[in-house]
Amino acid sequence: MTSLPKKTQKKLGLVTDLDICVGCHACAVSCKEWNASGHSAPLTDSDAYGKDPSGVWFNRVHVYETDDGHNTRTVNFPRSCLHCEQPACVTVCPTGASYKREEDGIVLVDAEKCIGCKLCSWACPYGAREYDADDGIMKKCTLCIDRIYNENLEESERQPACVIACPARARHFGDLGDPESDISRLVEQRGGYALMPETGYQPVNKYLPPRPRKDRAGDTGTTDHLEAAEDSSSGSSFFSWLDKALSR
């Protein structure tokens, strides 16, 4: 059914810290590695070693530059499915292949039902869905559904592959529907935000903004103004005369 559940018991999702993401693409590569043999496998590549490679990825890392007129900043920005509360990618699906789970809010595609009409990818403003031309069906982030509930894995490993792979600990996984969860607290403390809120899709995933930069004297606790050191050459002393004489 492509009608949405009125309420989901949990809102599982990711929080990405843009302040500490180093843009190493480990999340994207690790995601590709796990999911290439996971729930939505394979994530087909074409011309992988040729001149024009393309393929299905659930995670894409952009790099942006911001410019406030004085300073520029580089912000690394991983982009993946936000498991929205109002995902139009689900409601536009004509077959019922796309669905949002009532128990945890994860948005998935049923590979047996998808006809590959691509309309869901048109309905997603976040570019979360990528079509697999080989399989003829749409694919998307599963929030590593085959990891997070997988009892064959150590409990510490029951997290999405991207979260585990991140060497900077910029990615966090948890229940964003529970205000007491660690991840919700993190969002609260750091002013986490949703992307393109004007779409009304209500993304579950949140992003933590880059922290304000300490780029002025004073920001770091030092005095914000330093007096210029006295210029010894300006006096009419003997040494000044000597300096001039020797500089000739």
């Binding site: 843009l18 994207a28 990825w57 894409r60 890392v61 952009h62 790099v63 942006y64 530059e65 911001t66 410019d67 406030d68 007129g69 520029t72 900043r73 580089t74 912000v75 920005f77 982009r79 403003p125 935000y193 949703a194 992307l195 393109m196 809120p197 004007e198 992003y207 903004p209 880059p210």
Partner: peptide, 19 residues
């Protein structure tokens, strides 16, 4: 700026594409 939520930092432009 609204897509990335980085508008408060100034003009936002893509420095490097993901692929």
């Amino acid at each position: 700026a609204t897509a990335t939520g980085l508008g408060h930092l100034g003009q936002v432009s893509q420095l490097e594409a993901p692929h």
